[in-house]
Nucleic acid binder design. Structure first.
Lengths: 243, 243
DNA sequence: GGCTCTCTTTGATCTGGATCAAGTTATGTT
DNA sequence: AACATAACTTGATCCAGATCAAAGAGAGCC
């Protein structure tokens, strides 16, 4: 996997310019952010932030995938969020976080030191508003996931996960056409869906056998039957909505 | 249960004055809210808002308990939030909601028409900031609940639920001393915890048999063994933290 | 090319919580 | 007080997904 080099890239050339925390900024506001930003990179598997550790910086995720996870005393873990490009790490007024943040693939962040960023938020309504929107989007996503974790079957969980990946990964242009990247191991997917890795593997096999998806390799798949996938999520009763 | 009459009550006498969306307001700002507010009451079981319906008003919950829930096509439902006094319904920039809001007990809301409220938010930073804090608190709660739904056992779910009730219900002074109200049916608790009502009932019985809690009646209980309760939640490994 | 290590698949078995099925206790209502 | 209805408890059985186990399949390295 190639890791784009971003040092020296201007905000106007940034791939997440219109979806990240800076989405609503005008040129003037963007200039201030431009002067504050630094890029950081992490290898797949690196821990970006530990739960409870003081938060030195906030950041937008530019490339890659990161995960938020919580762990019980005996080691059971549950992912409580997946960060894709344009997602934000850190919250106004919070000096620490309640979960670990880990690089799932190689990751590049656009970072701002926390104190000056907060000062900027306070007198830049465009940034404050965008932060609120991002927080509310995360809250909606968290609630969809609560329904999934509490009430969906293993098959429905896997179908919903694939459906979410298709919707959210505005797939990189350079990739094999039609092949959607699966940027996580079976174990990480299991931790996201509240399952075991064996069950994840079995349900992928079942969807493949049913002709809903197909794997080009273990980390790239294609949708064969979009309608079948949608039905398998358990969300829509009305087939007309999926057409 | 007595339902306090609130018509004519001033904001300064309001029981949620210092925790609700108005928490940071000065007297001037409070005056504006005072002029906009109206009270609405609902009976236990009433639907306050349907998913997808245009949002006419936003509100703070003053008395009672309400729930947010999502439903799959075949009727399986999952509660995705519990609203207690001072919690807020409605979000800046959102004209509809993604879940049903239902009165769990008799409920009183302090309502504001949506459009004028949003106008006020835009030029009252104290309100905008407080709304952000409330949203982030909900996000933290949602993530704790994802860990519960995805990884905890039935016993741990029940213990965590009780522990949350104890922490959050600043129990009404008029109640029987030491008796904590359980403001939901077994079925509603099951929908909150991703269980069935039979499992909820069995786990309450098990905690009672183990001497952790005791019931004065079916909707009021007491904590007998606080340490035992904390251990049963599965959260803390370190007993020193619970002391 | 062969070796090692990690990830993945598949099979066999077990079990926690769901489901099915009575009874029991409250809370009204007339 | 008798009745009706809704909420709750408890028991018996079942099954989806966990757990235990072992065998493939990549990917990196010398």
């Amino acid at each position: 996997m190639t890791m784009p080099v971003l040092e020296g890239v201007t905000c106007n050339e940034c791939p997440i310019r219109h979806r990240a925390v800076c989405a609503r900024c005008d040129d003037d506001e963007l200039g201030k952010l431009e002067g504050m930003k630094t890029y950081r990179s992490y290898k797949a598997g690196d821990v970006i932030l530990w739960r409870g550790e003081p938060l030195e910086f906030v950041a937008s995720l530019v490339y890659g995938v990161a995960s938020l996870s919580k762990t019980l005393e005996d080691g059971r873990t549950q992912m409580v969020g997946l960060l894709l490009p344009s997602d934000f790490i850190g919250r106004p007024g919070r000096t620490e976080i309640e979960f670990d943040v880990t690089a799932t693939s190689d990751v590049t962040l656009c970072c701002f030191d926390r104190a000056p960023f907060e000062a900027l938020v306070n007198d830049t309504p465009h940034v404050a508003q965008r932060l609120m929107e991002l927080a509310l989007d995360e809250l909606d996503a968290a609630r969809d996931w609560m329904l999934l974790l509490g009430r969906k079957t293993a098959q429905e969980k896997i179908a919903t996960f694939i459906d979410m990946l298709v919707r959210r990964s505005h797939s990189e242009p350079s990739e094999v056409p039609g092949a959607i990247p699966l940027p996580m191991t079976r174990d990480q997917i299991a931790n996201y869906l509240g399952l075991t890795l064996e069950t994840v593997s079995r349900q992928f096999s079942a969807l493949k056998k049913r002709g809903v998806i197909d794997f080009t390799d273990r980390h790239h798949f294609q949708i064969i039957d979009n309608e079948g996938l949608r039905l398998a999520t358990g969300d829509d009763s009305d087939p007309a909505l999926a057409g």
